[in-house]
Design a binder for these strands. Structure first.
Lengths: 144, 144
DNA sequence: GGGCGTAATGTTATACAATAACAATCAGGT
DNA sequence: ACCTGATTGTTATTGTATAACATTACGCCC
């Protein structure tokens, strides 16, 4: 899916959910889309400053938080970064693989093991918030 | 297991692995042990400063990195914190459950599903960094 | 013991990440 | 127009982590 198509779909998606993809939020989303793999908040901030002059950290963090909340982005804790969710529309649970070396992101189907994980948690009375699991490591190209 | 027993066991464990649990590293480990749940680097730093006067961030981070490398501690990315690994002796993949409400942290054994996850990743040529997976959600006590 | 290489620690400064607190503005409903 | 709540702007600060280099301690060989 091209960035433009993605943005259009995101627009419709937010519309349908009754949330507002404002100009600023759209711009931040576009900036994240414009780069491959994991994107950092301060990188987005720098890009935003190039495009619209003044901008401060809270501006970026608020937009990113919104986008994560909507499910358009995922936060990658291990890297203090963000990645685009390739299919926010269908609510299925994915396994996201992030290469620490090159920043490549891919998604694997791991429904079975994810179900098992949730079950293991449930056995302890623990209710996981639904989320897409992220594994960091090295991709095929990058392990020496 | 009491802190003292844990420290003694850690000592033997490092000895056996040919790594050095120096006085400083032992002290940092003791400081982490002295607190329940998740411990933050700068909290350890403050404690260390109380105990030995001067101390700077790199001192603490290096000790914590060492302890994580040895498997004595786990880093909890989602919280920028560290937890004690209760069973460093047996090689294992842990599943760490963090309650968003009360902050409780527990480590569950989920070797099977974690193995499956790694396998799913491996099928794509992806090598996950050895890590302990974190699920956030609500614990037994907390889901209303 | 003296000298050497490596690992560990100390020190200073800085980079990177995130939020607090409050002011200003905008959009929709009545 | 007016009110209300959400969004964005602004300034300042707090929290997290590492770079770069100096110094000290340890093991080893001779």
């Amino acid at each position: 899916m091209s960035p433009d198509d993605y943005l259009a779909a995101a627009e419709r998606y937010c519309e349908a959910r009754g949330s507002k993809l404002t100009a600023l939020r759209r711009q931040v989303l576009a900036l994240v889309l414009s780069q491959p793999g994991v994107v950092k908040a301060y990188q987005v901030l720098a890009d935003l400053q190039r495009e619209r002059g003044a901008a401060a950290p809270p501006t970026v963090y608020r937009a990113l938080d919104f986008l994560v909340e909507q499910g358009l982005l995922h936060r990658v804790d291990a890297l203090n970064g963000f990645i685009v969710c390739p299919h926010f529309e269908c609510a299925h649970e994915g396994l996201i693989l992030v290469c620490e070396r090159c920043g490549l992101v891919e998604e694997a189907d791991a429904t079975n093991s994810l179900d098992m994980l949730h079950q293991a948690a449930a056995e302890r009375g623990f209710a996981p918030r639904r989320q897409n699991l992220v594994l960091t490591g090295t991709c095929k190209e990058c392990h020496a």
